[in-house]
Write a protein that binds this DNA or RNA. Structure first.
Lengths: 341, 341
DNA sequence: AGTTAGCACTCTTCATGCGGGAGTGCTAAG
DNA sequence: CTTAGCACTCCCGCATGAAGAGTGCTAACT
């Protein structure tokens, strides 16, 4: 199914032109703007072949060609080159990672923001699964007479907290309870920590039982929390810029889909192509409402587990640039989490 | 400027009909659906008067009437009655507040979600200003060898945390530092706490100086953080349902405005009308891009200071219901924060 | 004097029809 | 195999016209 040199050039030209303008592209335009040394007529013939082969389509029987999903796939797999971000741009973006240590949550939020602003597409980060993370530190802190703050730090720097009711107790007592929790629950993976907490609860019949029960409950809720909780998303507005949104009902559908977090399922469900930043084009997606869009997303590793970072844009997105930018963020996130021992 | 009984009824009818349908309303429709015992012709005359007085307008020279801002204002101030939420609905919504204690942040997020879902408008909560809050508890917790977690609990239950670098130190040392911080900074208002921290920094020349400097820096950033950080927003999609969004560029403008938090300024800048849930209609708003919309928002008190909770919807929003729902949430939030001693 | 019916008038909306333009596919010649 | 030429198709924009909704006015009614 390999394309000869000229067909490849023409397909690439059509894709790039269509990405730029959003309009169907005709033989004339290709001949004019991409110097291939042949006439429009020749290009017409080639485009006819490419359509036959399924790489191109038409919006109606007699206007220019538009890449099909298969055409885009061919383009991203074989035709497009890697591009590099400009010096200026990568420096700008890097500054985000160089700034002072923040908690992971706000870092990820800023990453999403930068990513969407840099591309004009919707950006997302899917945090690592809790199941496989472990607890680095757990503390119970006095706040008021009858309230204490439970703070849990995961090994990758996520901090969760929760206010719980406590019976009146002295500082020493609270420290004692805190100690017990730390001893029993630290450095245990979240999937097992629930059982540990239950076990602890069984043993502990004293007045602290209620406190421990609340801790157990919170741990439970942490692991049960829907995937959408781990999902940071931003730049949905950007999508409105895309001309394919002349029709508002589509926006609504998409937003609905995104708000209830099925985006995650889409990514999780399909095994991504093997390319580095994975690319999912149009119909390759599982969820109906995003079959008009493309994903470009990469993986960053945190300790044993991993998170995703990526973009959602129209099928006619600037893939080379999207890939370059996603790869950039991917690498920087990996660095950050690596240095964090 | 008082309206006679019949004009009032007709104005109310036009507003309510327009809210329901989104279309200009004609004399015929008013006569048919609201039994006023007079013919369309009479209503036409009255509507002519109301237009003369500035309460109604026309979209074009010969189709039905549409309420003007002044008309809506008259409606909300004088004409509309208070409605009560149905038993079923208020029970549903109340369950949100009855559930187990969570940290304030997630409570507010859920409130926003519920509020927007209950109304189909965009909902927001503007948390209380940090300036006037005080610190209830501050702790420094060991996480790894060279990292510690700074946790700060404000008097109204907000929890902020931040990872900081620390020199190697024993548990006892860290507890000692933590103690110092607590002694010096607890129960001091955030506006003063910065100075305290600076003073502490001057005195402390030991190896903990760096740690304290980082704490000071974080406190600084907490108070300086833009208002948008205190703003929880949700349900922007709901706005897309409104027919006034046939035009996409408006959506974009609005979203832009909202994302950069000028919504807050709008509310802060204008002194609200004195009605309980404040209502700002169309041109009464400061910011250009929301002059097409209305706000309905209330105030909830937390300790000495206060936050806002409200809705942003089209001018033709269901004001009685919006008011009822905002008032409901307002009251429930007040209760929650009151019980929290 | 207030109310009502009738009617002409205005303005929108929708469908219809008609060039102009862009682009294709085919054919025939280079 | 490539190219020029040409007929054909289809979209798009625009004007035209008919239908519908609603008003404002006038004149009659109570």
């Amino acid at each position: 199914m390999a394309l000869d040199e000229r067909k490849a050039q023409i397909l690439a030209a059509v894709v790039e032109e269509h990405v730029k303008t959003g309009l169907p592209v005709g033989s004339r335009a290709v001949a004019r703007r991409y110097r291939l040394g042949v006439s429009p007529a020749t290009i017409r013939n080639e485009m006819g072949d490419l359509e036959e082969m399924g790489y191109l389509g038409k919006t109606h029987a007699s206007s220019g060609r538009v890449p099909s999903d298969k055409g885009y796939r061919m383009y991203v797999d074989e035709l497009m080159g890697d591009i590099r971000l400009s010096q200026r741009e990568s420096q700008m973006l890097e500054s985000l990672f160089r700034s002072k240590i923040k908690d992971v949550e706000s870092l990820l939020k800023e990453v999403v923001k930068a990513l969407s602003e840099a591309t004009n597409y919707l950006a997302f980060v899917l945090g690592p699964e809790y199941e496989t993370t472990t607890i680095d530190a757990i503390h119970l802190l006095p706040v008021t007479m009858d309230k204490a703050l439970l703070v849990i730090v995961s090994d990758m720097g996520f901090v969760e907290n929760c206010l719980i009711r406590v019976p009146p107790m002295s500082r020493e007592e609270m420290e004692y309870v805190s100690e017990i929790l730390a001893e029993q629950l630290c450095h245990v993976s979240l999937s097992k920590v629930k059982d540990r907490a239950q076990a602890l609860l069984k043993r502990e019949t004293s007045r602290y039982a209620d406190v421990i029960a609340q801790v157990a409950e919170f741990l439970e809720s942490m692991t049960e929390e829907p995937e959408s909780e781990r999902l940071y998303m931003g730049g949905a507005v950007q999508l409105l810029r895309q001309p394919e949104f002349k029709d508002i009902s589509r926006v609504q559908d998409l937003m609905q889909t995104l708000e209830n977090g099925s985006l995650v399922k889409n990514i999780a469900a399909t095994q991504p192509p093997t390319t580095d930043p994975a690319i999912m084009i149009g119909e390759e997606n599982e969820i109906e409402t995003v079959k008009e869009f493309s994903f470009v997303y990469g993986t960053f590793r945190v300790r044993g587990t991993e998170g995703k970072i990526g973009l959602l844009g129209p099928k006619r997105m600037n893939y080379p640039r999207a890939v370059a930018i996603v790869r950039f963020f991917e690498n920087n996130l990996n660095d950050v989490f690596e240095k964090r021992n």
